[in-house]
Design a binder for these strands. Structure first.
Lengths: 228, 228
DNA sequence: GTCTATGCTTGACATAAGTCAAGGAAGCAG
DNA sequence: CTGCTTCCTTGACTTATGTCAAGCATAGAC
């Protein structure tokens, strides 16, 4: 594993306060690997063998039931994922696949559990990470249960705009069908939701989005730090 | 606080492995309180002041947005709740209210955080609890995104039946409107979903439910430990 | 027992969102 | 530049679910 990769992992909230010997021995057991796009990394129902850290590329967490799939989250680097299943030593509730070629570091789940029991600072940070994951899933659920398709899209776009420093124009971060699935609608409905947002000052052409009237959009999305 | 209450809390997964001095000092800071029914305990957006442990009664966790509400979870005794907001020292994402008269133990959030940083076993168990909460929210979200109203009800009833030892007849655990809100539908839709389940061997009269053909129901609900 | 409040069910209807099928745009390969 | 592939959009239509209003049960209160 390269030093800069190691350092990026060390800088993650999850590993920042870990004792150096714990970290080093964890990293000895870990290995870095490159994956092609569209590769399934994790299958829901399987046991968690590795804590994954995404170093570059993008990963989709999705859920399957009865022949359907839905996007639950999109992981951006540098982030760890599937910590909960690793710590519980339980079957994955979600599947994961690469969206692009990805570089990842895989840390054996058993070593993560051992470090976690040995190193209080790590346990504290792991709990923090889990608490954040939980809260983020609560937000997602709230959005699904309390907003309609148009409102969810409006809120999503506002958040994107904020992620771009409040810029009125930006590119969508993902393919539209991925956005649609994440937001809990079909691609067709996403298309229609975009058009219906014209009257709220949203213009969309391909991957480009322009917001001409943020206030009007805010009024619709009622953005709320308690949702997303 | 009574000894039997203390013991019930001590027996919770969250506190089971905590060092005795940590536990005792945490409980010194805590206090037991009775609440009437329909009392709002927590308002979303407010800071978390106390970790709550429900000793008797029932509590609803719900979310609000733009004048609407939806049930996110129903807490049964003996369970702690709102651990994530306490540990993160962050605003509540959900509100909570009593459904019945309740007995609760309130533990100051600052003391919980301190104990958590001091006591590794507690930190480990807290992480376990958070991981479980996360997983349970993932299941809820999967159900909402992947199943229609009838399928969600079918799965809910199967789970209830299993909770009653696989008995074909049981009472609903909550008012129907609460079940409806939890399952993400209106009371009217719940009524219709019940009727449409007749052909799958479900009979419902008031709070009583009878399952005459579990296999048919299973075929519809495709119950899956990975959902709920 | 009767009365009343509450929650539940039903019907009629409205609306949001999904489905299917066709057409179009954009990116890439040659 | 041309043609192909992939994804997106659109229109027509279906279906699921929500809304509104009325009527009906049930459980307590008296």
């Amino acid at each position: 594993m390269y030093d800069d990769e190691l350092q990026e992992i060390r800088d993650l909230q999850l590993f920042r306060n870990m004792a150096t010997p714990s970290f080093d021995s964890l990293m000895q057991a870990a290995y870095s690997q490159d994956f092609p796009a569209e590769l399934q990394l994790v299958r829901q129902g399987a046991r968690a063998n590795f804590l994954h850290v995404l170093v570059s590329g993008r990963v989709e967490l999705f859920a399957e039931w009865s022949g359907q799939q839905t996007t639950m989250a999109i992981v951006e680097p540098v982030t760890s994922f599937i910590l909960a299943a690793c710590l519980r030593d339980a079957p994955h509730l979600m599947s994961a696949r690469t969206l692009q070629p990805c570089k990842m570091v895989l840390i054996p789940a058993a070593d993560v559990r051992a470090a976690f029991r040995r190193d209080t600072d790590f346990a504290v940070d792991a709990a923090g990470e889990l608490a954040e994951s939980y809260r983020s899933m609560v937000r997602h659920t709230k959005s699904l249960k309390l907003r309609n398709a148009r409102e969810r899209l409006a809120a999503f776009l506002l958040r994107q705009s904020e992620a771009h420093g409040g810029s009125p124009g930006f590119r969508l971060p993902h393919e539209k069908r991925l956005v649609a699935s994440y937001l809990g609608m079909t691609p067709e409905s996403l298309s229609r939701a975009f058009r219906s947002l014209n009257e709220y000052g949203i213009y969309n052409k391909g991957v480009y989005v322009t917001i001409t009237d943020v206030e009007k959009l805010r009024a619709l999305a009622s953005p709320d730090s308690l949702i997303e």
